[in-house]
Amino acid sequence: MDTIASTTAERPAASASPSAAPILKVSNIESYYGPIMAIRGVSLEVPRGQIVTVLGANGAGKTTILKTISGVLDPLKGTIEFEGQPIQRLDADRIVRMGLSHVPEGREVFPFLSVRENLMMGAYTRRDRRAIPGDLERIYSYFPRLKERLEQPAGQLSGGEQQMLSLSRALMNRPKLLLLDEPSLGLSPLLVKEIFGIVKRVNAEEGVSILLVEQNARMALELAHYGYVIEVGRIVMADTCERLMASKDIQEFYLGAKDESARGERRWKRKKTWR
């Protein structure tokens, strides 16, 4: 197991497949909301074609990492390389153009545009306009329900349908890397399963690399290849998902395994090894 002490900032992120160059390499980024430091010296990598997840509690800084990568926030320090090119100073629209799409927390659909117009906005930066009808068909095959609601304003969709639309809209950009922020938020377990299934297919069938931020640690660890654990703005653990799932700390604090505390060892006395 790979536990990282407080010297995270100086340490290069561990990579799951060191052979190929990663599609995304984040090194020592620090971002602030006003005077408050939200992430401190975070480094991580997404290997090409893989799903990487970032786990952490509310307010740990997961969303901030994604916003900093997609250019909505500018990091004060550190570098972000996408396909070998530094992107930490680029505007968000330039980064999208390079093939990095962000599915934001809370869906953020255009409420009065129709479902079709929302999807077309996802393809806004595309140069190959002719391929768009084919991509729409592919989206409908993933989510047939969107096809039924094409002309409805997106604000009238249910939460689950809006999440489907938000994901589909990002896919219309034909991204090489997809940032997914809490796709399970507020959805029924059945819908979560459906959406995670599609994410898995997008990764497997289209080779899209994915950086997934989730509170639903079990789902995320089952889906992803590699995982990072973040607490109060810094990364405290990084390993393959199998090993993370086997870790006692992860089981106790993120998967809510009960058997241990039921047997004698009192839960509130147990300390995280990284503290």
């Binding site: 997609s70 250019g71 909505v72 505007d91 968000a92 629209d93 980064i95 999208v96 153009r97 799409s101 962000h102 599915v103 934001p104 953020e108 659909v109 255009f110 409420p111 009065f112 545009l113 117009e117 929302n118 077309m120 906005m121 996802g122 806004y124 930066t125 809209r169 990002a170 950009n173």
Partner: peptide, 19 residues
């Protein structure tokens, strides 16, 4: 359409790569 989208949700417009 991008202008209408920007007026409805500017943050989402950024995420779509709309300048």
């Amino acid at each position: 359409t991008a202008m209408r989208g920007t007026s409805e949700n500017m943050l989402a417009a950024y995420y779509m790569g709309i300048p």
